[in-house]
Each structure stands twice: as structure tokens, then as C-alpha cells.
């Protein structure tokens, strides 16, 4: 939402104290919430963009999104987990079951239990979700 002048002041006064050299990626100004409106995260009553997060792949296709109201912050580790999962899927065609983390088993295409409905229980256990 804020202007680039405001981004500069925030960077210099506060963010540079959290991250050496400041935030390394572009901080976009979105006057009037035009981009926020495109992505469905502009709250016209409050006049702000709410906390939206969009993961866009190298072909420009939206793969994942998360939207929160202002009081609660996001979880960077979850974004990285999703990024790794989508990258692994796009590279290998494997499916990434619920609770997947790097190092945990995936579901390769051709897996027996995937061929008939009702057999995933044989290879995926509730503990895999945690």
C-alpha cells in the first residue's frame, strides 16, 4: 500500500536493524490498492491490503495462496515447504501427500496404492501428517 518513500524510511529506521543491508527484494508501492484488488486482498473499508501471500511458478502460474487478516503474521517455513514441494513435483511428477516435508516419502506415479481408490491407507499413516 505505502509509498516508496515510506518503504525507504521503514527500511532505514527499522528493517535494516533486523536484516543487515536491509530487505533484499523489491518493496512495491500499491497506491489505491490496485494490485491488491487484482489479487482479491484489498479491503476497501479499511483502505489496506490484507496479509496475502501468493506463490507463482516460473511460467507465471499461481500455485498457492494464503490470506490472513492483519493481526496474525505468516510462516516463512510453510512457504518454503510448499515451494520445495511444488519444485519437487514439477521436476519428478511425484505427488506430495499431506504433511510432506523434505526427506519424507512422496507418492511416485505408478505407486500400487494409487491405482485403485481406497488403498492410500496402506501406505499413508496419520503420523505422516505431523
Amino acid at each position: 500500500m505505502d509509498s516508496n518513500f515510506s518503504h525507504k524510511v521503514w527500511q532505514e529506521i527499522e528493517l535494516s536493524k533486523m536484516v543487515k543491508e536491509g530487505i533484499p527484494f523489491p518493496m512495491i508501492a500499491d497506491p489505491g490498492g490496485k494490485i491488491g484488488t487484482l489479487y482479491g486482498v484489498y479491503d476497501d473499508e479499511g483502505g489496506v491490503d490484507v496479509r496475502g501471500r501468493f506463490l507463482i511458478d516460473p511460467n507465471g502460474v499461481l500455485q498457492a495462496m494464503e490470506v490472513l487478516t492483519p493481526p496474525v503474521g505468516r510462516n516463512v517455513m510453510e512457504v518454503l515447504r510448499q515451494l520445495k514441494a511444488f519444485q519437487h513435483h514439477q521436476k519428478t511428477g511425484e505427488l506430495m501427500p499431506s504433511g510432506w516435508q523434505p526427506g519424507k516419502p512422496t507418492l511416485p506415479p505408478g505407486t500400487e496404492a494409487l491405482k485403485r481408490a481406497g488403498h492410500i491407507w496402506e501406505i499413508w499413516k496419520v503420523e505422516n501428517a505431523f
Binding site: M1, D2, I35, V48, D49, R51, F54, I56, N59, L83
Partner: peptide, 15 residues
């Protein structure tokens, strides 16, 4: 940014 993964984040305001 084609060819790269992009994370696009919105937030209500600086500070």
C-alpha cells in the same frame, strides 16, 4: 520474473 519462482506478499502498512 518468468523463469523464476515469485513470492508476492501483501501487508497492510509499513511499520
Amino acid at each position: 520474473y518468468r523463469g523464476k519462482w515469485v513470492m508476492l506478499c501483501f501487508y497492510p502498512a509499513d511499520f
